[in-house]
């Protein structure tokens, strides 16, 4: 019986995924670590996967087969890399001996082991971590807006992490999740959707054996720093509100993440130390040659960028999907030519 962990990313997040994988390997040398890759390399770079920490790599093409192009065209990079999580979970559960499966976003790093969750899965089917565990003070209107109202909009559980037992109930969840993500993994707040995360508000309603993990050491991030304080004890263990820091979600590396961290870390300078460490790791794990903001599926095969509006058009028009099953192609009779003709592309 084996425990599997996977993450989903494109090449532009390879550095982050490597940091996650290394931290997973440090904590759990016996786990099988998967990379779910929704991307292809450009001629400017190549990755030797046999030299990576990952034990296995599975691509979107392997998960979606002949329908990959048509399906991927309907999603932007965030939607696509998120939507593959469902099918990847099914694929991993199909592995002989796979007993428990953990998903981590690539911008997470583990600092202490996950044995507690592994043991929880002996009895539970699904383990989720909420964005917040404690309400903000009534007077903290900015925090309520940033944290609680944002959670109401984007989903109360953070789907940067989910752990599932390969049991009938766990499989039922995986199947439902994969279905929804294949059809509805969209960033459409106007209709109440936010990729895979908003769907998971329904998990406690639909499934039994759901554990909402209310431990401040898990999934620490800017959205819950207003209620969590990181300190090191005399043994050098990082503790959040007294509990060992299990993993930190380094969301939005850059100026937005900096701003939110500064806003809510306040005087908790240990948080800044974590970020300082993470930045160094990202630099050390970077891959030379990956073009800035690279995503193979972000453009037509002649390099023309695909606007989000075109993806949404294709997504909403079944006739286009049938007429152009290879939407990335350019040239005569292609979707690209049709879009230009109709004025959707210049």
């Amino acid at each position: 019986m084996t425990v599997h962990a996977y993450t989903s990313f494109s090449y532009s997040y390879l550095d982050r995924a490597r940091v996650l994988a290394a931290s997973l390997r440090r904590q759990h040398p016996d786990w099988v670590i998967w990379a779910v890759l929704t991307d292809k390399a450009s001629p400017d770079f190549s990755v030797d996967w046999s030299a990576e920490v990952f034990d296995k790599v599975v691509t979107a093409e392997e998960l979606f087969g002949a329908a990959t192009d048509s399906w991927l065209f309907r999603n932007d990079i965030v939607e696509a890399c998120t939507a593959v999580k469902g099918r990847a979970l099914q694929r991993i559960m199909d592995q002989p001996g796979a007993e428990k499966v953990f998903y981590f976003d690539p911008d997470i790093a583990l600092f202490n082991d996950m044995m507690e969750v592994e043991q929880l899965l002996d009895d539970e089917a699904i383990v989720l971590t909420p964005h917040q565990l404690d309400p903000d003070d009534r007077s903290e209107t900015q925090a309520i807006r940033d944290n609680e109202i944002t959670s109401l909009n984007y989903g109360v559980f953070n789907l940067g992490f989910v752990a599932v037992r390969n049991s009938p109930e766990g499989r039922r969840f995986a199947d439902w999740w994969a279905d929804r993500l294949e059809d509805w993994c969209h960033d459409r707040l106007d209709i109440g959707l936010f990729v895979d995360q908003k769907w998971c508000n329904l998990i406690p309603c639909f499934f039994d054996g759901v554990k909402v993990l209310r431990d401040p050491g898990y999934n620490v991030a800017s959205w819950n720093l207003s209620q969590r304080t990181l300190k090191f004890d005399s043994q050098g263990t990082a503790r959040v509100n007294g509990a060992p820091l299990r993993f930190y979600h380094f969301t939005k590396l850059g100026s937005i993440g900096d701003k939110m961290t500064r806003r809510y870390a306040g005087d908790n300078s240990e948080i800044f130390e974590l970020w300082w460490w993470y930045r160094l790791q990202i630099v050390a794990n970077g891959q030379r040659g990956i073009p800035n903001r690279w995503w193979h599926y972000g453009q037509f095969d002649d390099g023309t960028p695909i606007p989000k509006s075109v993806r949404e058009l294709y997504r909403s028009r079944v006739d286009l999907q049938k007429a152009f099953p290879k939407p990335f192609r350019t040239g005569e009779g292609s979707l690209h030519a049709w879009l230009r003709h109709k004025g959707y592309l210049k």
Binding site: F111, F232, S234, Q235, G236, T237, A238, E270, E273
Partner: peptide, 16 residues
């Protein structure tokens, strides 16, 4: 920044 007390090499403090 802060006194660490020379913890174990495998500790979070040393790792960071």
């Amino acid at each position: 920044l802060q006194f660490c007390g020379a913890p174990d090499l495998a500790s979070n403090a040393c790792g960071l």
